[in-house]
């Protein structure tokens, strides 16, 4: 099956410092991939390269077969890849409806005419309400984003990326800043939303090994900018030395799901 996103021999250097060394990976249709590694392993740089924000020093990244090196966020969104951030990243003064409409209006190319009525645009409204329903935000549509709870803000952040109707979504620690009790419910919602919205692949950067074990089809471990492992959870968590190298802890107590269960789409 053709890869949705593929990186081949990607390296990234900042002067003498090499942040990524010959990284190759791919994500196929329907996969949920977790990128793990200790601080300084090169996860953030890899995410920036995979999302076209940074040009690799060597190697290339292809999305749907086209090179996306350094294309920037706008073109990335246009081509069908969305990105969520580690810290809550919202528009505080905009309502939930307006936040989702920002993405919907971009996707539907509504910007060329500055006199077009947004309130009468049924397609934008339908998109907004569809995504709000998926993320249980319908009752909050007319609330300013700043008035939402922390968990709801995180949901809105992710939901706005979904409003682009992406084929691939890359999320940096989707549950960071969220209470432990809410983490699994947010992840469940994310996977369910991906299934409903037709997202064909998810890449997450995650430190929480319980979440990684439960939801991933494949785990890519980085260390010192190089790929240390690229394994399904069942194999990954059978190797204590590998886990110790990545997080320095014992394997999580939560059993992982089978690949078929965890697939988002």
């Amino acid at each position: 099956m053709a890869a949705l996103l593929a990186a081949h021999g990607v390296s990234k250097s900042y002067g003498a410092f090499q942040a990524l060394r010959d990284v190759s990976l791919s994500i196929s249709d329907g996969e949920f991939i977790s990128i793990v590694g200790p601080n300084g392993a090169g996860k953030s740089t890899l995410v920036h390269v995979l999302t076209g924000l940074l040009k690799p020093t060597a190697g290339h990244v292809h999305f749907h077969g086209a090179n996306i090196a350094g294309i920037g966020p706008v073109e990335l969104a246009r081509r069908g890849m969305a990105r969520g951030f580690q810290l809550v990243n919202i528009f505080p003064a905009l309502t939930v409806r307006e936040t989702l409409a920002v993405a919907a209006a971009s996707r539907l190319k509504r910007i060329a005419n500055p006199f077009r009525s947004l309130t009468r645009d049924r397609e934008v409204r339908a998109d907004v309400e569809e995504v709000a329903d998926i993320f249980n935000l319908r009752h909050r549509l007319d609330q300013p984003a700043s008035a939402l709870s922390q968990g709801e803000k995180k949901l809105l952040d992710v939901a706005s990326a979904f409003a682009l109707k992406p084929q691939l979504i890359l999320i940096d620690e989707p549950t960071s800043g969220v209470s432990t009790g809410d983490k699994h419910s947010i992840m469940e919602l994310l996977v369910t939303a991906a299934r409903k919205a037709g997202v064909r692949g998810i890449i997450q950067v995650e430190h929480d090994m319980d979440l990684v074990a439960r939801y991933s089809d494949r785990i890519i471990a980085l260390q010192g900018g190089a790929v240390l492992a690229n394994e399904p959870p069942a194999t990954f968590f059978r190797d204590p030395a590998l886990i110790a190298a990545v997080v320095g802890t014992r394997p999580p107590s939560v059993p992982h799901k089978s690949a078929a269960e965890a697939r988002p789409c």
């Binding site: 990335l76 969104a77 990243n89 528009f91 003064a93 307006e98 920002v102 993405a103 971009s106 682009l164």
Partner: peptide
């Protein structure tokens, strides 16, 4: 308004 609130986020939403 999205740009005013958070230009980086706006760019990732295609603005």
């Amino acid at each position: 308004q999205a740009i005013r609130e958070n230009a980086q986020k706006a760019s990732y939403l295609g603005v």
